[in-house]
Each structure stands twice: as C-alpha cells, then as structure tokens.
C-alpha cells in the first residue's frame, strides 16, 4: 500500500520546505518514502511542483497524472494546471490566492476569473485562505506550513512527528511561528 501526494505552487512560496518537512516526518514514522522535485529554472517565479510517495516498498519517486491521493495547490491557477494529477476521488486542497504570471501582469492576457467557482464544483475539494491566516500569525510566508497542517489532518496522520521535523529543518528563529502555523493548519481542515 502507498499514498501519493503532490504539492504545487509558484517558485518562492515554500512548497519545497513543506515537502522536506513532510518527507522527514514520514521517514521518522517508519514509512518507506520517496520524494521528487524539479529544481533549476522553475525556481524563478515559475510554476513548481514536488511529489511525495510513501508506504511500503516504493519504487518510482514520481507521482503521475491521475494518481495523486492528495493535491495541495498553494495558488489557485496552479490547482487547475495540475488538476489532472489528482485521482477522481482524491482530495484537493487549494489556497485561495492569485499570483500573477508575467503574461497576465504585462497585460498580454487576463488572469482567469472564476477559478475558485470552477474548483468548488468538484467533490473532495477544500479551499482556504492560508495567506490571510498566515498574516494573523504575523508572517505571510508561513502559509506553506499552514497548508501542510491542513494536508496532514486530511490524511488523518495527525500523529506524524511533524513538530520534530520542523525543529530539525527550520532556522531557529522561525521554529516557533512554524509550529503555530502547523497547529493552525491542523485545526482548519474539515
């Protein structure tokens, strides 16, 4: 048995840190786990994605189209871009945030309207404003860990040693706020 998780967003949103923390926690909890991400050009404000697969005897590190049990989109348009990765009955978690692409910002084309309404039509879809929630904690950047909390609750894996992984992987001055962000995320799902 195994589960497939995919995290998508825009370069700079912290998808990679969330992925690292989750991967470390899964390892410490005794799962076989593989993770894959694409570095390089896409870091510069482009679309980014990372894959986590866990369970027993995982071979491929890649989540392919139609196979994600959980898809977490840190930005709304990215949710649609990667929608074909989530299983038909898989859980989709979306951060209700618009980030312009250079094409929409330069006025070459419009940022699409009604994405949230479109996504809401799908069952098993959960939409949150993690950016606003992060601001209430005093740092917009922790939206990535809030979304990680939502995901962990959705996976029913609240006992994963995420807090320990945060302590291992986050810079000391940001550990406390990230712990708070994770707990806030846990309380949000449902």
């Amino acid at each position: 048995m195994f589960k497939n998780v995919k995290l998508v967003g825009v370069g700079g949103q912290g998808t990679i840190l969330s992925t690292k923390i989750l991967t470390q926690a899964l390892l410490n909890a005794g799962y076989d786990v593989k993770m894959s991400e694409i570095h390089g050009m896409s870091q510069r404000g482009g679309s980014v994605s990372s894959d986590i697969r866990f369970g027993e005897n995982i071979s491929s590190p890649v989540v392919v189209k139609g196979s994600a049990d959980y898809l977490v989109a840190f930005e709304q348009m990215e949710a649609v871009r990667y929608l074909d990765y989530v299983k038909k009955d898989g859980i989709l978690i979306v951060n209700d945030l618009k980030i312009h692409s250079m094409l929409t910002q330069a006025g070459k084309t419009k940022y699409p309207e009604d994405i949230i309404d479109y996504l809401k039509e799908r069952e098993h879809t959960y939409i949150y404003d993690a950016t606003e929630k992060a601001k209430t904690l005093g740092n917009q950047k922790v939206l990535n860990i809030i979304l990680l909390g939502v995901l962990v609750k959705a996976m029913k894996l609240e006992k994963l040693p995420i807090i320990e992984a945060i302590e291992d992987l986050v810079k000391p001055q940001f550990i406390e706020i990230n712990k708070k962000a994770f707990k806030l995320g846990l309380s949000m799902f449902g």
Partner: peptide, 16 residues
C-alpha cells in the same frame, strides 16, 4: 488512466 480533464481556459503559462 482515467484522468480528469481540467478546463485549460483557466490556465495561463507561468514562465520563470
């Protein structure tokens, strides 16, 4: 695989 077909009208390229 039985794959969802997203409405790609709602997606704009996001080059780096």
């Amino acid at each position: 695989m039985d794959i969802l077909q997203p409405n790609m009208d709602l997606v704009v390229n996001r080059p780096p």
